[in-house]
Amino acid sequence: MNQVNDRSRDIGEFVPRPDDDMVICRCEEVTKGEIRKAVHEGMWTVTEVRRYLRTGMGLCQGQTCGKLVKGIIASELGIPQSELEPATSRVPMRPIEMKVFAKEAKEADGNG
């Protein structure tokens, strides 16, 4: 079992730090402290933190913060970053208006 799945492991209490106010996810304005706290509240994977705090769920879809969030979670858990799965990649890869997303191009063969 890797260390992420071993939820019985004691990672200690949340300890506040001076840079906790720093915004990490620029789109959803999630701070470093919030991410660290989330880990202590049981969110041990990038996906869990994402669902819990919306990191990487804003307009840019984690382009900027993906690696940073992963690094913060890993360091809070005391494990190497490579042990954490990155966030799931999903359609759409770029911001897109729903009206466009829903508009399939008409093709000659009708198999749009």
């Binding site: 359609v91 759409p92 770029r94 897109i96 009206k99 466009v100 997303f101 829903a102 508009k103 399939e104 191009a105 093709e107 749009g112």
Partner: peptide, 11 residues
């Protein structure tokens, strides 16, 4: 692949 071209989605 799903591609956005202009205001449409192409497969």
């Amino acid at each position: 692949l799903v591609v956005r071209i202009g205001d449409e989605i192409h497969h």
